[in-house]
């Protein structure tokens, strides 16, 4: 039964992705500007060369022909070459993915390390000073644009103190594994901390409010009535129940995480997927935009699916059901 469910969900996800990709294809077709006209701003560049380029990538073909050609090659696993660099679109993303994964993973870690304990603290100490402080901080973090935090962090830790570098780690050949790890950590520290702190507000609020709600629910009250200790109630009953919305949120957050990554990637010169997708959209680099959309789409789908599955595993209410 769960396998059938999983298969059905994955199949519908594939259809969904195809629809989204087709819609994106149409969007770029309608969008003003094309990948090559900006080349003409150089007075030595001839119109013939630009026309030849457009023909090479089939941009002179009618929409339907282009779409069908793309569909056939895409279904055979080839996302086509980038209009800008001529390199396979898929390779561009594959090279960048580890960087984004490192940054997003580290940021998520920071986000939960800050958000969960502070949120629980706020809920347990509801309406006391600690709670107010935590809530105000979380609202401050919300209303604060992430560039603000990023620029301040960079000014302080890179320029003033000189502790942490900007950009991605450089691994010259023959670098020992230990040194590679150390470099990766040093370079990811600043962007990940910035992004993680900015995102922790979310986790903090959901934890606090979820816990507050749960603490008044029947089964938690019942547990307390049975004489279970406060800590035990919190960890065994309240937190797992409150984790429901939180897990949901984590799944829903995936796309938000990836768009949040973009600003951080740009400011900290981090060579990740967000930057590639952003540049591709601005230069109307259709194959790269489609490949990136497929990638983020797969993440959204998997995120939701994972959230749904986990929700079932964690929440004691659905477990009982």
């Amino acid at each position: 039964m769960p396998w059938a469910f999983l298969l059905r969900r994955l199949a519908s996800a594939a259809v969904l992705l195809l629809i989204v990709l087709s819609a994106t294809f149409a969007l770029i077709y309608v969008a003003p500007g094309d990948p090559f006209s900006a080349m003409l701003l150089d007075p030595r560049v001839g119109a013939d060369a630009v026309a030849a380029l457009r023909a090479h990538y089939g941009l002179d073909q009618p929409l339907v022909a282009r779409y069908l050609r793309w569909l056939v090659t895409m279904l055979s696993g080839d996302w086509g070459p980038s209009y800008v660099s001529g390199r396979p679109a898929f390779d561009l993303l594959r090279e960048a993915l580890p960087y984004t994964a490192l940054l997003a993973g580290a940021a998520t870690l920071v986000q939960y390390l800050i958000g969960l304990p502070l949120g629980a603290l706020a809920a347990v100490r509801a309406d006391r000073v600690a709670d107010h402080a935590v809530r105000v901080v979380s609202l401050l973090l919300y209303a604060m644009p992430s560039f603000w935090l990023a620029l301040l962090a960079m000014e302080l830790f890179t320029v003033r103190l000189g502790w942490l570098p900007t950009g991605a780690p450089d691994f010259p050949p023959d670098l020992a594994l230990g040194e590679q790890i150390a470099r990766a950590l040093r370079h990811v520290a600043l962007p990940a901390a910035t992004l993680g702190v900015a995102l922790s507000a979310d986790v903090l609020r959901y934890t606090r409010n979820g816990l507050l709600d749960v603490l008044q629910q029947d089964h938690v009250r019942a547990a307390r009535a049975r004489g279970l200790g406060a800590r035990r109630v919190l960890w065994r009953h309240a937190l797992p129940t409150a984790a429901g919305p939180l897990v949901h949120h984590a799944g829903v957050q995936l796309p938000a995480l990836f768009s949040g990554v973009l600003i951080i990637e740009v400011i900290f010169a981090w060579p990740g997927v967000g930057r590639i997708a952003y540049d591709a959209i601005l230069s109307r680099d259709l194959p790269v935009v489609l490949a990136a959309t497929a990638l983020s789409g797969a993440l959204v789908v998997l995120g939701t699916l994972g959230a749904d599955l986990l929700h079932g595993l964690i929440d004691p209410r659905t477990r009982r059901a």
Binding site: G162, V266, I267
Partner: peptide
Amino acid sequence: RIIPDQAGQLAALRSGE
């Protein structure tokens, strides 16, 4: 070094990178 953002470029210049 490929540094897309102007603020990032300035920080790298001032920190000596």
